[in-house]
Structure formats: C-alpha cells, structure tokens
Simulated scan of single mutants.
Amino acid sequence: MRYVGTVSRGIRLPVVTQGDDIIKIITENVIKASESERDRFEIRDRDVIGVTESLVARSQGNYVALRDISADIAAKFPKGDVAIFGPILSRNRFHQLLRGMAAGIKGKIHIILTYPSDEVGNQTIEPMNYYLNSGRLSGECFGEDEYYRVFGEYRHPFTGVDYVQLYKSIAPERISVHFSNNPLSALKFSKQAVVASIHARALHRDILEKGGAEKVVTLDQICAAPVREGAGYNPDYGVLGSNYTNDESVKLFPRGCGEFVRKLQAEMKSRTGRDVEVLVYGDGAFKDPVCGIWELADPVVSPGFTDGLAGLPKEIKFKYVADNAGDKDPAQAVEEAIRAKDELDRFGHSTLGTTPRRLTDLIGSLCDLTSGSGDKGTPVVYIQGYFDSYLDD
C-alpha cells in the first residue's frame, strides 16, 4: 500500500554563470539525485521539474545597467516633469529602477505612493495609526509634509527603512513624494506618467490615458528591447520582475521561457524515457500571515510552462464527501466521487473549498517555498505525486 502522496525535493546544482548549458546541468543533476545512495527516487511520468527564474536569467546574462534604464526613459520622456504612480516599497525591486529612471528624467519627479500599504502589502502607514488619524487628512491625495505631520515617521518593520526618505534621497532637489490611491492624482503633477504598479498596471494605465495623460509608460515597456548592443531586455515584462544585482545593474526576468521548458522536457524524455512537466517559477503567490506582505512582486508566478501544466486542478473536497456519505461507507463514497470527478460541476457541493487557482500558481508557489531565497543551493525543485489522487497506488 502507498503511504506517501505529494513529495517536493530541492535539487542542488553547481553555481551557474552566463553561457552555461543549464538544460544539460539540470538534467544531469536530477538524474544524479534520483540515483544517489542517500536520497534515491524513481523518475516517473507526470513528475514536475521547477526551475527558478533567476537560474534561467543568469545563464542568459539577462542584466541591464541603470544607465540602460536611464537611456530608455530619456527616449520615452525627452523633456518635462514625470509622475510615477504606485511603486512598491523595496530596495532590491524598485529602488534601483528609480535610480535609473531619475537619471533619465529631465524635469521634476513626483512619486505617488499608495496607502496604507503598497500593492503587495508593504505598509506606508501603520494600520492602527492610519485608522485613528486618517480623518485629519485634507483629502485623498496629500504630500509628504502632511504625511509626517499626521502620521509621523514610519519605518518598515523588517528592513527598518523609511522608504519615503530613501526614494527622495535619490534626487532630493527634484523628487517629491505624494500619497494617493487614485491613479488620476498623477495628473495633478504631470501629464506624463510612469505606472509602477505590477498586477494592476493595465488598469492604471487605462485610467490615466482615459483621464487625459499625454504619455503613459508601464514598467513592462522599459527595456523591453535592448537599449544598446549586449544589453539585457525582456520583450514581455521589461523591468518587471527585476532584482538587485549590484549598485549599477539589475537582473531581469528571463526571456524565452516557453522554449526553455520544452527543451528541458525533451532532454529528460531522451535521457530517461519519462514524460515530465516543466515550469519556470519566480515568486510564489502567497501572503505572509504575520507581516501581511503578499510575496508576488513578480508579474507572474510562472513565465513559462509545458502544456500539461495549463489550466486548473479538478478535485473533490475529500472531507465534504466523507462527512456526507449518508448510508454509504465513507471510504466507498470518496472512491466513487473521485472516479466520477470529471463529470462534477465545479461549483457543486463536492468541490466547495477547492479554490479555483491555476496549476502553475499552485505548483510555482510550492517550488518557491521549497527552494527558498537563501543559501539552500536548490534552484531546481522536483515534485512527485502532485497529480495523483487517493486511488493511485
């Protein structure tokens, strides 16, 4: 009898640098891991290989210098002031981008932060302080002087950073910080805008364009093509999903992930005879229950995946069926429900509580939690049994 269901393993790899053949490296190390004396496992059909986006981007050398960001912004906004709406509060995500943009903008820069938190949950104002004192605000859009007068200084609980001062310090004479949850507030300061939000970027861009903005640029349009020969770029996401590399550059989201996953799938088939699924993953789509931060600062959980990972899972709610078996044996009721689940109504009682999330979001989040972001050295995750049910032995 089988006693183990889904298993997620972090696979250790050597340090990968630009130009390395990661298809070969990943395949060889997955096979070595499966054959190792200490942690042996059998490679099976429908196993899943998750590859962190940073590994793919590093092998591609997909980096941009801040001067590349500056050049692209200067071309898009050759003159005048620019408003930047909705950036997240992050040193490794947005601070570097702002440094690059500030160097390319000729006029004044108006940064508009949302409150009481940014798009992914980093707080601009401590919630109790906000609810007790928000009635003292002069309106929905207010400046940094009013912010400090009403709420006082706020430092991020984990980083200890006052992000208002951090962002302003990039160019104190040209940068002003404002607070608003309405994208149209940007038009009070300039008819030119950068939409710096991640998941709501299309909505915010449409609002500004319909509201009378003359030029709106989203982060996925910055460095969407190489600014110079040899510079990194991403045609789908631009600088969205970028991460701090050093003081003068950032790593972009990887390019061509669809082609990459198909090649790795084919290589595994050639070497093992097994049909595995593959995805590239970034941030998991989960929210930290303590700090309230939603971890998904990347534009998507998975920028590339094989066909078998498309769509939503179709599952029954095991405990609901067992609790409502009536005269039947609960085990028999569960078995019958699983066998008939392809005919179930997704909105029926037997599926209540099975949240309709995409497979790539679920599996990518599992990969992110397994690999972590520290020193585990496991940028590849091998998952088994994810598509099995209680009936599979």
Rank of each mutant, 00 (worst) to 15 (best):
I383Y: 06
L208G: 00
D307M: 08
Y320G: 00
L309C: 13
V82N: 00
V239L: 06
K269I: 08
I88A: 01
L264I: 09
C223Y: 08
C141K: 01
D283R: 10
L132N: 07
D39H: 13
K287G: 08
E267L: 10
H349D: 14
T159Q: 12
P127Q: 04
V278P: 09
F286P: 00
D275Y: 09
E53L: 11
T354R: 15
S185G: 08
R255K: 14
V120R: 06
G292L: 00
P183V: 02
V161W: 09
I26D: 02
L208R: 03
I105P: 04
Y115L: 00
D392C: 09
P299W: 03
F85L: 04
M1T: 13
D39L: 11
V261Y: 03
E335Q: 15
L208A: 02
K376Y: 13
T17F: 13
V177M: 07
N324Q: 07
C367A: 14
R149A: 14
R174T: 04
L344E: 10
Y237L: 11
M1D: 09
K314P: 03
C257G: 13
D39R: 10
G304R: 07
G284K: 00
S54M: 07
R58C: 11
E315H: 09
R99F: 02
S34V: 13
V195L: 07
F85Q: 02
G385S: 07
F142W: 07
A322H: 07
E140S: 04
K376E: 14
D118Q: 08
D162M: 03
L97C: 13
Q265I: 05
K263N: 11
R274W: 08
G152V: 11
D72T: 12
L309F: 06
T27F: 10
I338G: 00
G348A: 11
N92S: 14
E144D: 13
K314E: 04
I49L: 04
K168F: 08
V164Q: 04
V290A: 12
A337W: 05
P379Q: 01
V7S: 12
F189C: 03
K328C: 05
G364Q: 11
S365F: 07
F318M: 04
P157V: 11
V280P: 09
K287W: 06
Y320V: 06
V217C: 01
H178S: 05
M268H: 03
